[in-house]
Design a protein around this nucleic acid. Structure first.
Lengths: 221, 221
DNA sequence: ACGCACATTACGGAAAACCGCAAAGAAAAT
DNA sequence: ATTTTCTTTGCGGTTTTCCGTAATGTGCGT
């Protein structure tokens, strides 16, 4: 079983739940942190001291406050740790259940498991720990098909930026000018139009207003 | 101190946290449910049996699943209970921190306290229980000024309906037709235009997209 | 160098949004 | 009944969005 676990989660009430799972598994060597940066520093330090953590359970979204954070989200933390190929298993524990998000975390950031907070969250977390321990990956049943689904035309950073500017009240023309000013390409009005059209089709939106409404609901912007 | 408490919250890990607070207060007569409808039924039943609950701690948003729910959200549950003037105190416990939402829950649904989930959520929950016990209301510091802010009273149901339809992708023309079909007045295209203009001015929005983006952020729609 | 696929830009027309002002209607006051 | 005021509707003109299509550019393999 895992010997040393780090729990990164800013809501005190939730980490309580995680810890009850750990205790049920007789894991008593665990530490809690509330910021991604703290998690990163503690893991690095422990590794250098030859007393490494072997499991990280982390939330994805953290409320921002006054403290400046280098790793603002769980994804970034996970990706950073995995890129240093530290020998640590990572379980993402999030309310987020959108396939796209799950894909990002599992494929891009390379987490070992993705557990959805929900009615069965703690039970699934328990299962995830067992799976990861045995070198497998794990996905909550709710998002189990996220990786198999036909990857829908990716929504990339460019798309998100366009939608953000739209939501901030810029006209397509202004977005074009904005992109030219920031050397972002493509930047022509025509290109902006085309991209918005692609997004509208992708989300089955009738018009720009509808599109931004949907994107907001999905938490894309 | 409260004698009998109901906790309504669909995320198991969070209700664990709530319960640890209750236990610290030596309240051991509590029941957990994961659906608003269950909460309503249990409270009604207990009241009829002359063993009423005297405190309800409830989340606001519940993930939907296959089960049809009469009360889909915490607000509706709170409002229904308060309208029957059962003698029960109610604390809303939510991640939501938008003033408009807080106003709705406190003023419209008539909750006794509003606690934001967050780093200090459990501590504040503890304070809220104490306040409510003494007949006071309580707001998390983060949303403490939500009720004092200049209430945007001039946004009425009609305005909200217009914005909802806009957000759902209807053109101003289609909204006009929709209103005529539902006998809502005014319904002319010109009137819709004028209303949207008023809303844009009110929220300092550049255009309809911007308006709907703002309205979503404020929780109006 | 050439052709080919794909990305980007350009353009023109129809629809919708945006904007100001005027006409018509309804309600209230005198 | 008439005036006054406010609400609702109508309308013309400009800008922006929407949509199809065409032209240009760019990278890549042969």
């Amino acid at each position: 079983m895992f010997k040393k676990v780090l729990v990164s989660e800013d809501l005190g009430s939730i980490s309580n739940g995680i810890i009850s799972v750990l205790e049920a598994l007789h894991i008593d060597n665990f530490i809690q942190v509330q910021y991604c940066d703290d998690a990163y520093l503690k893991i690095k330090k422990a590794s250098q001291d030859k007393r490494p953590f072997d499991l990280l359970i982390t939330d994805l979204s953290f409320k921002t406050d006054h403290r400046e954070q280098k790793y603002a989200s769980g994804e970034k933390l996970i990706k950073a740790l995995k890129e240093e190929h530290l020998n640590i298993k990572i379980i993402a524990y999030s309310v987020e259940d959108r396939p796209q998000k799950v894909r990002n975390v599992m494929i891009d950031s390379k987490a070992d498991a993705y557990v959805c907070k929900g009615r069965n969250g703690l039970k699934e977390l328990d299962e995830a720990i067992a799976a990861v321990l045995n070198g497998h990956t794990y996905l909550s049943p709710k998002v189990g098909n996220a990786l198999r689904e036909t990857a829908p035309a990716e929504i990339d950073d460019y798309d998100v930026e366009v939608m953000k500017l739209l939501a901030n009240g810029l006209s397509q023309d202004q977005i074009s000018v904005n992109f030219q000013g920031h050397n972002i390409h493509p930047s022509s009005l025509s290109a902006i139009e085309k991209r918005i059209l692609k997004l509208r089709n992708h989300f089955n939106a009738n018009n720009s207003v509808h599109l931004i409404s949907i994107a907001k609901d999905l938490g894309l912007i």
